[in-house]
Every structure is written in C-alpha cells, then in structure tokens.
C-alpha cells in the first residue's frame, strides 16, 4: 500500500503493525521483556478500536487466551496472586506451580484481565478470590498501591490498576475504597491537576488515573465544586496544537488519550470537541510503516500506537470504535464484561 503523505489516516497499516506486535518476534524490545502482557493489551485493544479483532483467527484467539492463563499465579500463602508480565520465570519444571519470585504484578493483572475480556473470554478460569485477597495486601496505609508484593514502587498508576481490577471483578472488597479516595484527594495539586502522589507535580497520566478511579468507584462527587472546576480547567489547558501532559511541556501522542479521556469522564471534552486541530498532531506522528510515535519524526511503538488510536476515537475520527474511558477499553469490550458479570450474580 502506498502512502502519499503522513496525514492520510492508514488504519490498514496500523492493523498490520499491531498484528506484528502480537504475533511476530520483536527485536530491540528486550528491556520490555517483563511487560509483554502490557504490550499484548496495547495490540489487542488497538485492534479492537480498529474493529479488526476478526483479523485474528479463532484458533489464534484461543492460543492467546491459553498463554494469558499460563501467566496466572494463584498463591494464597504468599499473597502474590494475579498475573505475571511475561514467562521470564516460567519453566517446564515449575509449570502450574508456585516457585520463588513467581509473583503477580498489578499492572499485568490489569492488562491480562482486559485482554481476556477483549478476546471474549468469560473469565471462568480467573481465581477472583485469590486476586482480591492479594490486591488488599498491596494497599498502603495512605491508600496508595504498590505494584507487587515487594521490590516495586507505589503510585497513582497502580491505584488505577487496583480500582480497575475491582471494577472488572465486580467486587470492591479488594481494597479500602475510603483510603483510596483520600489518597486521590491528597494528591490534588495547588494548580488543580493531580500528581502521582501527594505534593508531586500534576501530570495528565496520573490525573487520568485518579479521575478514572473516582468514576469507577462512583466517587466523583467527592470532589468539591472548586476542585472539579479547577481540574477541568487544568485539563483543558493541556490542549494546544495537540495534547500535552504538563504545563509548558511539548505535546505528545499518548496524552490525546490521558488528557482527553479524563476530560471525557469529567464531561468537559465537549468544550474542545469539534476543533479541526484535534487529530492533526496525532496524524503527524503516524509512521509510514504503521503505528504511531510520541513525537513527529520518531519511531513508532506499541504504546503510542494504542494511545494514538484511543485519542482519535475520542475525537470521533477515522471510524474507530468508541471508548469506555474509565477502564481504557472499547465500549464493545465493556459490554461483554457486563454480560460476564451477570453470570456471577
């Protein structure tokens, strides 16, 4: 397929790129070895936005599901249940068994659960009880969450993963919700935005995470009127010739979702909605071989490809599937989740 210029939206190339991420052997990505399940989620969620999940054969969908379940850890004794990021520690010998450091990570549990939902799995093999028990043990006294049992930092990203896991499993016994809310409220900065934790600089990524947590747990009303106003204003100001993540920082493809998604949840996206500039920047970061990158003239990667597509979906551009922003997944996948949850009642 010939690309005349980069401003022509090329969904077919993005499909090929994401299928390559999913099925190919990737060079130069070895430092992401530990986060393969996150990359898988970006690829699947991106294909879902493109309405191209059917380009994965049924048999392959099943084998992906099997691979995901091979990452599940059920270990009630050590409280490390959930999903691993990859098979780095998995061997023929410890298959299906617990072994030293075979621990779940909260970001991978989130990515794996969403991937299963996108693929249409019914989550029947997910050990919900074990995951929730572990999740509870990862919450800190200030309400934040660490990513895993030990050796991992804590911040708003993992609070979002925790809230999403509770929402997906339809069971908030996985955390102390009040503590989570107070952590979020304590992380609101003097400028109205929200940082990765108390007193840290406001950032669209952490602001999205915080806002989504409040929405998923039905706590948006806990923001005061002044906080709500300031938060929307701060987010709206992140929009210029594209979306940025912090005041006086350059625009970046991924913030078209982080900032845009938070604005959607706060019912403020409408204030910038039909501006013709909106999708221009994202299109400029399109790679002529498929995928999107962070900035113009840089190399595309799976993360920016997914968030570029997600951001453009919010702009109603390119005929992409609609998003359920709170969970960072399509509405189609969210509806499937709701049907699965019905069977648990």
């Amino acid at each position: 397929m010939e690309v005349k210029h980069t401003l022509e939206f090329t969904p077919n190339l993005h499909k090929k790129y994401l299928l390559m991420v999913l099925n190919g052997k990737l060079p130069n990505l070895s430092s992401m070895d530990t986060n393969r399940s996150v990359f898988m989620y970006f690829a699947l969620a991106g294909l879902d936005l493109l309405n191209e999940l059917d380009s994965i054969p049924e048999k392959r969908k099943q084998s992906i599901i099997e691979w995901i379940y091979s990452l599940q850890v059920v270990n009630e004794e050590e409280l490390v249940s959930g999903f691993q990021g990859s098979t780095v520690l998995n061997t023929e010998e410890n298959k299906g068994q617990n072994s030293p450091y075979k621990w779940a990570h909260i970001a991978n549990t989130y990515s794996c659960l969403l991937s299963l939902i996108i693929l249409g799995d019914d989550l029947s093999r997910v050990d919900r009880r074990a995951i929730l028990n572990t999740l509870r043990s990862l919450q800190l006294s200030n309400g934040s969450f660490k990513g895993a049992k030990d050796g991992v930092e804590d911040d708003m990203r993992f609070v979002f993963c925790a809230a999403s896991i509770c929402y997906i499993l339809d069971d908030w016994s996985g955390m102390d919700v009040e503590r989570m809310v107070s952590f979020i409220l304590n992380s609101i900065s003097y400028d109205g935005g929200i940082g990765q934790g108390p007193e840290l600089e406001s950032h669209s990524g952490s602001t999205f995470c915080a806002v989504a947590c409040l929405a998923l747990s039905k706590n948006l009303h806990r923001l005061t009127k002044a906080q709500f106003h300031a938060l929307r204003r701060w987010l709206l100001l992140r929009f210029g010739c594209g979306f940025s993540g912090r005041p006086n920082k350059p625009v970046d493809t991924c913030y078209s979702f982080w900032t845009g998604g938070a604005l959607k949840i706060l019912d403020a996206y409408q204030f910038i909605h039909d501006n013709k500039l909106n999708h221009l920047y994202v299109l400029m970061t399109q790679d002529k071989y498929g995928g999107f990158s962070k900035w113009v003239n840089t190399i595309s990667d799976p993360m920016h490809t997914y968030f570029g597509l997600a951001g453009m979906s919010l702009m109603n551009f390119g005929g992409l599937n609609k998003m359920f922003c709170e969970l960072n997944v399509t509405r189609r996948a969210h509806e499937h989740l709701k049907r699965v949850q019905e069977t648990w009642k």
């Binding site: 399940s37 995901i68 098979t87 520690l89 998995n90 010998e93 298959k95």
Partner: peptide, 28 residues
C-alpha cells in the same frame, strides 16, 4: 541452565540474543 517455558504459541515474542538467553537460563 534452565530454559524459559513460553508455551506452545507465545504472544508478543521477543527475539532474544544468544547472550540474553544464556544469562537468563542461569538466572532461572
């Protein structure tokens, strides 16, 4: 050394270099 078990049909496979694989075989 202990080999990684990536299942029959892995996802988001990584084309490990020989040295990488060797190191992690001993790490496991």
């Amino acid at each position: 050394p202990v080999k990684q078990d990536d299942g029959e049909e892995p996802v988001v496979s990584i084309d490990y270099s020989e040295a990488y694989e060797d190191c992690y075989d001993y790490f496991r």
